[in-house]
Design a protein around this nucleic acid. Sequence first.
DNA 1: CCACTTGATTTGGGATCCCAAAACGGTGTT
DNA 2: AACACCGTTTTGGGATCCCAAATCAAGTGG
Lengths: 254, 254
Amino acid sequence: MNATMDSIDLELAARIRSDILQGNYAEGERLSEAQLCQTHNVSRTPVRLALRLLERERVIRRSEGRGYLVQNPTVADILQAVQVRGHLESLAARLFALSDKRASFLPDMEHAINVIEDCADAGSLDDAAIRRAQAANKTFHTTILKACGNAYVSYTCEQISHLPMLAAGSMVFDRSANDTADQSERAMFRLRLGNAQHQVIYEAIKAGDPVRAEGMMREHSHTMIEYIQTFEKRDKSLTVMDLVAYSGMPSDTE
Amino acid sequence: MNATMDSIDLELAARIRSDILQGNYAEGERLSEAQLCQTHNVSRTPVRLALRLLERERVIRRSEGRGYLVQNPTVADILQAVQVRGHLESLAARLFALSDKRASFLPDMEHAINVIEDCADAGSLDDAAIRRAQAANKTFHTTILKACGNAYVSYTCEQISHLPMLAAGSMVFDRSANDTADQSERAMFRLRLGNAQHQVIYEAIKAGDPVRAEGMMREHSHTMIEYIQTFEKRDKSLTVMDLVAYSGMPSDTE
DNA sequence: CCACTTGATTTGGGATCCCAAAACGGTGTT
DNA sequence: AACACCGTTTTGGGATCCCAAATCAAGTGG
């Protein structure tokens, strides 16, 4: 599944993160280094690197002298992460629209838009299609980050992209729907809606309109925030696990 | 000097970064782990952690199989980092202005503004005053980041703040001035100008005006970008070392 | 019953050791 | 001189070991 054989610490971090996001740990539960070494069959070195990473992602919290404690991300955390990512992406969109080298990146974006369009237009949305759409969405966004010409943008963005990616994946999941056909219907609707925004952003960038590109990107991320918020409003007990449900494995970094 | 006795890897990173920013390494020069271990008298573990950090800061670059190479940051790098930081700070300012808990943070900001004002109003700008003003400026900005209520903002911002801090420090340095008295004069002028923007931002936040707070913060960071750009225009050979000159030790993290 | 001491366990973090893989360097062959 | 071959360094990264400091868990004495 994972094409790139990453170093153990990254893989470890992904596994632990995945464990936590699936709700296998109680809030505040202690993560013992020794325990993790044993269950994952590695030494402390990579474990400590992984814990460092996860701390930065705010999935765990450290308490001086007592190790790391699980800090299950809340829906509020996700909203915050999405907010930051969206804000950075809007900067990226502006810079991208101003870049004179932007032509070379446009085909990738166009292709991503087409792939999503195809998924949304197909009769039903099976698992493979969902994955395809998610991958294309990711391509669309990372292309903008990479192409904007400011390396710090993509760097900082990557640091906090796990939760937003998860949220993006969850937009095809709708607990309020009655049956799977209905769910699929709504998912495709949202997919089409999001892709329409992609289209507008793409055109603004292509036309070299920085203000519009930034504004539209801002709106795009705001759409996701609003979606999660209404979701939360409808279902007070909304947890991160619900969002995880259809977001695919959170381990697919890069 | 350093109150917090940080772990060795952070201190190491600071030392190496400082070395590089002072131009002690040629562009592309190889950083040998063994060498660093010897000169700093530590083992490879902290060295590797430090190199990891510096890579993220883009002060060094790694070339698979050949270790790390020095990548002296250019003025363009600084501009990019400032741009990202400024963008994040403008988000922070907006959120801060919307926060209902903002009252408790206002005194800190007010105090910072007053300290800078005092420095600018004093007859001359000695070294101690420069340090004081720098520290207050840092307080002003980090307060906004911390107080905005979105932990991801301050987290991501910290990741790339070394170069911007350096640039901020350099704003009291003006190579175009003829003598030190003239330099001091100009420095105080810029200090006052920047502080006027601080005042406006402070008031917008206090008044709970998110749009104005964000806009003014954007303008504030744009001022710095413009300053560096005109600097660069006047002196094509402007290097990072020039900016380092009056920015104080780049080791004062947190 | 509470405060204080003491010993076992854990964390934090650095030093070494080790090994595979890649790069470098020198040698000999065509 | 170009190129393949082979030994030597480095790098990359994990496993162990080690030690100081903090925590926890009893146990002891007032």
